[in-house]
Design a protein around this nucleic acid. Sequence first.
DNA 1: GATGAATGAGCGTTCATTCAT
DNA 2: CATGAATGAACGCTCATTCAT
Lengths: 229, 229, 229, 229
Amino acid sequence: MHRDGIASVGAPGDDQVPVIADKPPARRRRKDGEARREAILDAGLEIFSGLGLHGASLDRLAERAGLSKANLLYYFPSKEDLYLAVLRRVLDVWLDPLQELDADSDPAEAIRAYIRAKLTLSRDAPQASRLFCLEIVQGAPLLRAELEGPLRGLVESKAAILRGWIDQGRIGAHDPHHLIFSIWAITQHYADFAVQVDAVTGRSLDESDFFESTVASTQALILTGLGLR
Amino acid sequence: MHRDGIASVGAPGDDQVPVIADKPPARRRRKDGEARREAILDAGLEIFSGLGLHGASLDRLAERAGLSKANLLYYFPSKEDLYLAVLRRVLDVWLDPLQELDADSDPAEAIRAYIRAKLTLSRDAPQASRLFCLEIVQGAPLLRAELEGPLRGLVESKAAILRGWIDQGRIGAHDPHHLIFSIWAITQHYADFAVQVDAVTGRSLDESDFFESTVASTQALILTGLGLR
Amino acid sequence: MHRDGIASVGAPGDDQVPVIADKPPARRRRKDGEARREAILDAGLEIFSGLGLHGASLDRLAERAGLSKANLLYYFPSKEDLYLAVLRRVLDVWLDPLQELDADSDPAEAIRAYIRAKLTLSRDAPQASRLFCLEIVQGAPLLRAELEGPLRGLVESKAAILRGWIDQGRIGAHDPHHLIFSIWAITQHYADFAVQVDAVTGRSLDESDFFESTVASTQALILTGLGLR
Amino acid sequence: MHRDGIASVGAPGDDQVPVIADKPPARRRRKDGEARREAILDAGLEIFSGLGLHGASLDRLAERAGLSKANLLYYFPSKEDLYLAVLRRVLDVWLDPLQELDADSDPAEAIRAYIRAKLTLSRDAPQASRLFCLEIVQGAPLLRAELEGPLRGLVESKAAILRGWIDQGRIGAHDPHHLIFSIWAITQHYADFAVQVDAVTGRSLDESDFFESTVASTQALILTGLGLR
DNA sequence: GATGAATGAGCGTTCATTCAT
DNA sequence: CATGAATGAACGCTCATTCAT
């Protein structure tokens, strides 16, 4: 139903068939190379998110990406390099919704939209969420720098917006960091713990009524919690 | 400060030095055997939670547990067996607080206590939480049965309690499953994503003021969200 | 004819069959382990001296030593470790004759004996000489430290003896370092360049008349060169 | 100080910039082609002499020669082909001084000149000497034919000259083969075992006083050994 | 001529597991 | 109980070589 993987999310419509068939060879070759890189990254997302860095083997990755192990290593010099490349692509996509949070918006509307955007990602790119989760849970041995740099900066700037709203009395007093963590935790839970959600409820975000009820529930909990209802 | 691991939680005071030194050899040996099993399970928790099933090697596990690889395999016939044993011990501890949720309690009090109990576990046994998270995120290949059996049953029975409270108008109308997931998500986030929390805020649940503010924040968000304030 | 390898030189008679068959198991096991180590070192000498560090494969080494590749790595943690162990054993044997050079001896007799000892080594342990040669020629990447330490010290002390003899007018004035290098060069040539010697003359040190004529020739050249005839 | 490599020895002044810039393309291309061949051979000498046939990789060779791996294989169809080409060029240069040995010369003068010529090569083209040494030490698997053919013939003819001088009583009686081997061994030692010489004495043939004293020492030893002093 | 892309074979090494003692 | 020794399978990676362009 929903495309699993983040290519479709990060760059929709990217893989349109070219109208004119015979491009000059140089360009065709480069296109092919980049398409292969993408295929490898897609395979990496799929397999790393299910087995972790150590559980994934180059053989499986290559097989899934449709090329030979040696050829895969031509594009990414080591398994870890591939893993990191996948992780970075994930991180970018994953933080995108937060970037949108704007001081000039209506707080209720902005938070409602943010929750929906995050849950949409959890539905459309659950593997990305899981891979990110896997890495963080294990102590982020390869991503720590990115967490302490860009992520921290982004969160600080958005926390400032929330604090502004609190100071203006537009939302209830609730520590901005805790609020952000709570929204992250709840929305990502439906991707990261999807098997558990499924085991307990038999439902998945792929079912649109469950998706909508999850969005509504989460929005209600948070907005009411912030005194916005 | 807080003991990391769940032995201290599940079986406090377990490793006291026996008062009388020379027990009969048969009994001593058996005691030693169980102590060794515990030591191996502790090592397993520590290492599996940091490296995952595939990232952990028997060599490391044995070294950490203080015995030889071959001897470790005497106690647990395979790496997967050990992994499962650790996981099961974790699951028991992890579900314990939910068992306490009682229909006859005051809803606000019960939920407040539940949140505190879960966050206490996140503080005192973060590795257990992480190991459980790791397993679920990867699709619970070895735990699915336990999720669909005991876990589902437990959640259903507690959801029924919540539904009862809602029907009685004692808490706001909020889907019980979503409510339980939200509490799980938020409280476990502080264990599972501890590095991220630390990277962004520089704080950890080990610091008692941060622990208390986290408890208060979460209780406020959930209880307000349920119209209990 | 002559045992190739240095075990026979360094530790003659070492592998005698024990008179009493059933040793206690602990001792037997250790014996076996050491015998295997020796077998591996022998295989290492044989193969490294013919193919160099990079040309030798663990598969070949293991096959020659009569065990599995994985088992070989149980005794030596890496190929390079094995290579170094072989090299060190070689170096010890190789420098031994020089140690014997004694200030109190008759110079002519001492030099004559030294030349014979070196040529005997070239005959009995040519692979050791070749492995050492291979390593030095490639710049001694793994042995440089040993050259600048122990070797240099040994040479200096023996050069002092030669210088003493020169000062006493007992041998002709010839720079001691150059003299030592010349003797090394000539005597080792018959091991290191054995194929070339064979290609040009059709002879080998294994033939006793060629061995004796080589000894005589070299002694004559050097001793006459030093004015001792 | 001294150019390392044999291009400078075998074909001095070969890489002069052409006076007239724009040659007709056909000829230019061919010239470029040969220059590239030379560059590859130079790279081959440098790298093979340091790492051996098996230790050198096409990637390194291509990088050093300044072209792509695939292009390198256009000039030499396989790594072994390149290795052999380098080796043959080395062999030619290496035997050159011996060719000069002339029956009509004064024996003392001829031998003195030969020693100096060989040591000059050891100084100016040590890598050539080392590569040759490496190959012979490993049993000359690729060069045996050349040793038993041209080399043997050359040595035989020169040994005849020496034997003539002996018969005429112009030099002391010393087996010609042994004499040639001794001169080879000593003179090449300063190239092949340069690291060892350096480790022991701290000197190198690149220092002109050490070079001259080595020449003098060697000439003295050999000529005195032959009763020419 | 020149090169980027591709690959099969092999390498050194790790690892879970077995076995004898 | 406990361990040193042993192994087959798999792993990540390198490499000489090929091929299409």
